[in-house]
């Protein structure tokens, strides 16, 4: 059976990379190194940061004041990445992150964004009807809680620090981290102690 034809987009990418290399803007090795960093990043990094913040008050303070330094301490590579801001959920305030302009996402600590994060529907609706969007995710935010939608429009990247669920007293950091999903770090879901 013949191999499927190579997509035109890949040929275009090859020509773009060759042009950038010819102009001395970026080398193929630099692109490969950056790709490797992004491939290594995953929501597990963000989850470990949250679990540490739940159990270590000093780390929590660091996370909220200097997200990039807090991420580095958990093994993320922040060199060349935009600054990382961390938004603390409280009993009175819930945060939801979106990028209405494109798909800005804290890749250094969450990896590649999910397809829905980049969809027109999520980007248009999250800023306009966040409660309806959250309800579709099964996330009910009580009326006495303020929802803050973070439109990630410029040079920062944003991650949510969810609240530690009840019933997790005495849990290890690893076990706590297992509760923290990518969706909770974006703010569309809440961690639950099953």
């Amino acid at each position: 059976m013949a191999a499927p034809p190579r997509p035109e987009s890949l040929a275009l990418l090859d020509r773009l990379v060759a042009a950038l290399a010819a102009k001395g803007i970026v080398t193929e090795a630099e692109i490969a190194a950056r790709q490797a960093i992004t491939d290594r990043a995953s929501p597990e990094v963000g989850a470990r940061m949250v679990a540490r913040a739940w159990t270590d008050a000093d780390y929590r303070r660091l996370l909220l004041t200097d997200g990039a330094e807090a991420a580095e301490r958990m093994g993320a590579t922040m060199a060349g990445a935009p600054p990382l801001g961390v938004l603390e959920n409280t009993p009175a305030r819930h945060h939801l992150v979106v990028c209405t302009l494109c798909s800005c996402y804290p890749r250094a600590v969450l990896g590649y964004p999910p397809h829905w994060y980049k969809s027109f529907a999520y980007r248009a609706r999250a800023v306009r009807e966040p409660r309806a969007v959250l309800a579709e995710w099964g996330t009910a935010i009580p009326d006495d809680v303020e929802i803050r939608v973070i439109d990630s429009t410029a040079d920062y990247r944003w991650m949510v620090l969810p609240m530690r669920p009840a019933g997790t007293e005495g849990w290890s950091e690893d076990r706590l981290a297992s509760l923290v999903t990518r969706d909770a770090l974006v703010g569309v879901a809440l961690p639950k102690a099953a």
Binding site: D143, R148, V149, D151, S152, T153
Partner: peptide
């Protein structure tokens, strides 16, 4: 909802 906010750069 009146309590909901947008925080934007």
């Amino acid at each position: 909802a009146p309590q909901d906010k947008l925080l934007v750069e």
